[in-house]
């Protein structure tokens, strides 16, 4: 495993200073925004820098679904599995995406381009079924549109 550069993490810390226990979750969010996931070396370093126990950071990182401890795709595809999307064919979309990317939910493509997840309602039920890629929404998704949507992300 190659060593992870701690520099960006230190910069996040400096930006947020002072970081105490109560800011542990925003800290992890910013670290994930920076690295794309939560590298172990970074969490251990943050622990010694902030005094927030490593066990605590690990407990949070595994409790909240948003966090990844493994290296993640550059883009995150989230398929909504809310009720509306469910009744309007989320499964078909899911299958189409699985086929397109060759991975299932919770997995990352070999080229680390995409990670695939499902998500509870994204609150865009009127456009169900809905897919999010990173922070972008795609409504009324059709299996045929999947390839087109994915091609917009490198």
């Amino acid at each position: 495993m190659t060593a992870v550069d701690l520099g960006p993490a230190r910069a996040v810390l400096e930006d947020m200073a002072p970081v105490d226990h109560g800011l542990a979750i925003p800290l992890l969010q910013n670290i994930q925004d920076t690295y794309g996931y939560l590298p172990r070396e970074v969490l251990l370093d943050l622990s010694s820098e902030t005094g927030i126990p490593a066990s605590h950071l690990f407990g949070l990182a595994t409790f909240y679904a948003q966090f990844y401890l493994e290296e993640h795709g550059r883009h995150t595809v989230r398929v909504c599995r809310g009720t509306a999307c469910h009744v309007r064919g989320r499964k078909i979309i899911q299958e189409a995406i699985d086929d397109e990317l060759g991975i299932g939910p919770g997995e990352t493509t070999e080229d680390r381009r995409f990670s695939l997840e499902t998500v509870a309602c994204v609150g865009t039920c009127f456009l169900a079924p809905v897919v999010m890629v990173d922070h972008d929404y795609f409504g009324n998704v059709d299996p045929k549109k999947v390839g087109e949507i994915m091609s917009g992300y490198e």
Binding site: R40, L43, P53, A54, S55, F58, G59, T62, F63
Partner: peptide
């Protein structure tokens, strides 16, 4: 000492150490 923590949640929750 905070050596122990819970990881995961709900049915998968488990006592463990960091990583």
């Amino acid at each position: 000492a905070s050596a122990l923590t819970f990881k995961m949640r709900a049915a998968s929750v488990e006592v463990t150490t960091p990583f």
